[in-house]
Amino acid sequence: MYYIFYSTNDVFKGEEILNDNNIDYKILPTPVKDNVYCGVCLWSDADVDVIKRLFDSDKLGDASLRNKYEILE
């Protein structure tokens, strides 16, 4: 799944979350067909619900990523 963020800052916030939770991921160019891209996005084949729960958490020590990304297959 591609996790596509509006803000580049949030891509790296997302990366930090995945790292902290030992989830494999890649940083890839965002598929250009989508218009919510910021150049790079996260890609991971880990459980989408787990990643969503982590991104949407209010306990990040930073603002939540809720509503700040889209998921693309």
């Binding site: 580049t8 800052n9 891509v11 790296f12 990366e15 930090e16 940083i27």
Partner: peptide, 10 residues
Amino acid sequence: AVEASRCLYK
């Protein structure tokens, strides 16, 4: 470019 963005976030 990715590393520069990572540095900016950090």
